[in-house]
Write a protein that binds this DNA or RNA. Structure first.
Lengths: 131, 131
DNA sequence: TCAACTGTATTATTGACTTAATACAAGTAT
DNA sequence: ATACTTGTATTAAGTCAATAATACAGTTGA
């Protein structure tokens, strides 16, 4: 997968975020086996310890199952995945609205800015969805 | 003003962000004098050096004028302020759409989640706008 | 069976952010 | 005029993320 890392926040948090997104978006299908820590670390260009820490942060959510010495896999429970997808979407929406509110935007203005921006990105979006 | 600081990103970046928002939203009116670095630092509960660094990052944008030994003030040029407000809103919108796209949401689904979330936060929003 | 790979753990080192404690030159206010 | 406040700079110390280099026990595959 493609990793995007900037230095405005701890790398392990960004990895955690992107791993969860990868599962929830179906990039890593339910039940599938995940690449090893070392492999993912090499792919992302980070130290294995850092990737390891990202997984440690992902524990307890139930999305990913760890088999001590036989790698990791994505849960087959679609219910869990769907729930987290919805939860993350809500978080994003709430954070976005809060920021726009902080800038002094009314709900109507938000809708307008959003549809303008959406129009700009439209081609890319459509292409990504069908792939 | 109210400061909200978490440890997921460098404090000076968060201060920078919030200062810009405060100006752009009109909390610090155009032409008004800003509190001193020391005062703002105390208010935010951070070291003066950290607040100083936040201002350093804000230089060159033209929003804030520094008068070497007589404090800082907000520009009176509303055009600059409006431009930055728009720019920041666009950035937020673009980032939001990208994240939602990453979760596998279609533009229609995004609109739906957004209006649901908006409904939840509505009372708070209205109250804040009129104050 | 045995080499290769898995997750996991440990130790040391580097670098960035943050705090703390000052210091100084220049403008402000009483 | 003089004390106070301003932005700015410097030095030292502490914290923590990240890298690097290993190591080990258990599973997988040829």
């Amino acid at each position: 997968m493609e990793w995007k890392i900037n230095d405005n926040s701890p790398i392990f948090l960004q990895l955690e975020e992107q791993l969860l997104t990868a599962v929830v978006s179906g990039y890593f299908p339910p039940g599938s086996r995940l690449p090893s820590v070392r492999e993912l670390a090499a792919e992302a260009g980070v130290n294995p310890n850092t990737m390891q820490r990202a997984f440690a942060g992902l524990e307890g959510r139930g999305v990913i199952l760890t088999n001590r010495t036989a790698g990791r896999s994505v849960t087959e429970d679609m219910e869990i995945i769907r729930a987290i997808r919805r939860e993350k979407a809500r978080e994003e929406a709430r954070a976005f609205l809060k920021r726009m509110q902080g800038l002094g935007y009314s709900p109507e203005e938000v809708r307008q800015v959003l549809s303008e921006t959406e129009a700009e990105e439209e081609e890319v979006w459509k292409k990504d969805l069908q792939s």
